[in-house]
Design a protein around this nucleic acid. Structure first.
Lengths: 207, 207
DNA sequence: CGTGACAGTGCACACATGTTCACTCAAGCT
DNA sequence: AGCTTGAGTGAACATGTGTGCACTGTCACG
């Protein structure tokens, strides 16, 4: 045999996860049926239980993976440094588009299940996005300009930016890769980020 | 009889719509079963067909109603005039919170089905939000400051604002009515809108 | 070489689903 | 008063669902 026992197992586990992601993209996680997945993978329904304790478990594993790519996106965004605001923005949007295209299915999954998924899934996604906001917020504490702001103001700006990013991801998901629509979304997002930065630059807290 | 035949029919039709909205709030539209709805309403499953041609038809009627309350929100927002930017923003956020609280289930439905619903539903919701963006964009053409802008810039600002509004609605839905969390969301949104307005005020298009 | 672990099989069960059909029986018209 | 219309009924259907249980065959290890 060219494959060891453990490798084979991992392979069908992957196949199950992939099939589940593909099938749920037509509808939703709650509408995902064990038997559909099994048929797609090419195993008998009961063999599914060799890999997951239940169908809910599958959903949890799926969201875990999706959040992993979310965290990857965040890491990439933070490491795509730049000198002035302009280049930071341009680079960030480029990274965003790239990552969304590269992991389209995962981001679509997150967008779908963010409000439609089971409670545990919804909460996990909310935590992921909340984390992004907090990270950006603390990053802002070290940036010239916002370093003098109050925590509250930084959180406000951070949630505004993250919100715009989420909206952009959602827009990208409905635009075909490499289409003019995609270009428009990217350009629009860049403009929006610049607008926000300008707003932040002239911001004076008025409680 | 205290009720006419037509009134009775309309009454159970309403009951079906209400039950469907309530039941789908636990999961999703696609996971909504005819028999669940029928049981909740107190009619036999087959009686359902006297009111809707199919379960998909129900979904369409549901989204139609939800979009109606969305349009109501937009109308309320536009009519809640004010003098300076500050009072316009404050009034708008107040209206937004009010409307979301008053039609919580409908807005939750929209948030859920926006990406998880069947294609027809998703497209209907996207059209509704697109309409909001276009309306705001044309409104901006008559406001001092943005009246001199290019259409493109106005669309960019409009989509930014609408996006922030959508995000705010989503945040409100996860915050309890009258809670301190709700107050924080409202305050944060007001600050964000002010930030955006400031950004717009100092905006110079850089193509 | 022999033996145990275990991924995958096949059958079974009990239950839920959407939709059909012929029906009842009261309201509302002529 | 008589007759039609139509909201609601109840049984039936074919199909899909999750999960339990005894099984097989092969890989990996003592």
């Amino acid at each position: 045999m060219t494959e060891t026992r453990g490798e084979r197992k991992e392979k069908t586990r992957r196949a199950i996860l992939d099939a589940a992601l593909a099938l749920s993209s037509d509808t939703t996680l709650v509408a995902l049926s064990l038997r559909q997945v099994a048929k797609e993978v090419g195993i008998v329904p009961t063999a599914f239980y060799r890999h997951f304790a239940s169908i809910d478990d599958l959903g949890l594993a799926l969201v875990e993976e999706a959040l992993d790519t979310l965290r990857t996106l965040l890491r990439e965004l933070r490491s795509s440094a730049g000198q002035d605001a302009r280049t930071i923005i341009d680079g960030s949007v480029t990274v965003l588009v790239e990552q969304v295209r590269q992991h389209q299915a995962q981001f679509a999954f997150i967008a779908r299940e963010r409000f439609a998924g089971p409670p545990a899934v919804r909460e996990a996604i909310a935590r992921g996005i909340g984390l992004a906001e907090r990270e950006l917020s603390t990053d802002l504490a070290y940036l010239p300009g916002t370093d003098k702001w109050s925590d509250e103001d930084r959180q406000t700006l951070s949630s505004l930016i993250v919100g715009a990013m989420v909206t952009t991801v959602e827009r990208l998901l409905t635009a075909a890769a490499g289409s003019t629509a995609e270009g428009r979304v990217a350009a629009s997002t860049r403009a929006q980020l610049r607008m926000m930065v300008i707003g932040a630059k002239h911001w004076r807290s008025t409680p």
